[in-house]
Structure formats: structure tokens, C-alpha cells
Amino acid sequence: MTGIERINNCFTGRAARKKCLAAFLTAGDPDLTVSETYCRAALQHVDLLEIGLPFSDPMADGPVIQAAYKRTLSAGTRLGDIFAMAQRLRTTTEKPILFMVYLNIILQRGLVRFLQEAADSGVDGLIVPDLPPEEADEILGMAHQRGLGLVFLVAPTSTDERIKLAAVKSTGFLYCVSLRGVTGVRTKLGTDLPEFIQRVRTSTDLPLMVGFGISGPEQVRQVTAIADGAIVGSALVKLLAEGEDRDENLRKLGEFLSALKKAAE
């Protein structure tokens, strides 16, 4: 099965109003071995896993994920190790695994080499927060050739025209940024979220996943009432960063994700 197919399959139950829960975890935080166990645990509960690749200057991310990337880089995690981890995860699951990766990481590896390594490791797609659809055609063609999907983001500030442009190029779903801002844990969702999702709906038939600022079951419930799924990131990264013991973290992560999953259903 290609990555694009795996991402698409994730939403085949959509007609039956099945909602999708996605988790975002950072690769290599606090080190690669431990983060791999967290990824495995998350895959037990969620429908889709996003793995964040560390970057020195993550301009779309808030303090929680910035700090996680810093820990990862200090631990000496290399790109090759992350691909190897993805490959091991692939052998255990048919659920989609996506990389959230800033463009410079891809460019310095070499476009062809990065995409080939991602495809060879069983990664299904990429989310590149600093790659807008109008700059994406070259990478899009080369990714699709290798069965890799590319997921684009839309924001409350996006015009209808830009939403359509992103939808045409996006694989499987559209990533709807819930608010004006960077990633992070927020206590409340934006008041204009329902109107924004409604606007995206009229521009595309793609499934809509909502991310940024979603911190707990209540917000997952609110989001899945109007969209096809929710993406939870900083709340998980924060929970794991605050815990001291790996086994205790695994237990808490499992509990939290199953509560989120229940809220999504």
C-alpha cells in the first residue's frame, strides 16, 4: 500500500460519521529510544500519527514544541535515526505516519534523497508548515511519484481562493489551523472556528482535521462536532515533558489518549 492510500484509507469511515484522532509527538524527545515507545503507545489509540522533526528555528511552533525540539537536538538525534525509527514503527502498524518537517531540513538533505528515504522508511506523507501550496509544485510531483502524500494547512485568515488551492494539492485531508497563532496549549478554542470550518466546507469535499491549541477531551468534542477529526500535539508533548518516569508517562499518555479518543467518538 502506498502512503497516499494509507492516508486516504484513514478517512474511509467518514460516511459513517467516524471521527479521526491524530497525535503529534516529537522524534527524539527526550531521546530516540524513549520517544519510539511513546510513538508505539500513541499508535494503539489514535488513527494517525504525526512525528515532528526537530528544527533549530521552528517559527510555527509555540514554547512547548520549541523546547522539545531543543531537547531532541541536544540529545544528538540525527535524521538517519529518525528514518530508522519510522521504519521500525511501520512494521507494527498500517495506520498513517506523517512527518511534520520544516522545509530547510528537506532541502539540506536533498529533495530527492529526503523523499526517497521517507518513502523507503514507510512514511506516508509530509506536513511542511513553511511550504505554501504555490511554492510546492516541484516537491509535490516528486513526492507523489514515490507514493508520498503532502498535507497542506489552511488558517482562519486564508481566503476562499487559497483554501481551494490548498485543497487541490492536499493528500487525504486538509489541516485546519484552529486559530491565529503558533502551536501550543490553549484553554479555549477560537470563537470564529465554526464559521471558519463552515467556510472551508463550502470550498472542498476533503476531510477536515483541526489542529493547534487543542488541549483536552472537551475541545476534541467541540472540534469533532464540526470537523472530521482533531490533532493534538503540544498537550501530549507537555504531558510527557512534565513526567519523570517513562512507565508512568506511558500510562498517563494511554489514559489521556483514550479519553481523547472517546471524546472524538
Partner: peptide, 9 residues
């Protein structure tokens, strides 16, 4: 122009 979608508009 390589920035998050939020600021592109």
C-alpha cells in the same frame, strides 16, 4: 515566500 499559511494573506 516560505511562511506559515496564517500570514500569507
Amino acid at each position: 515566500r516560505f511562511v506559515p499559511e496564517t500570514v500569507i494573506p
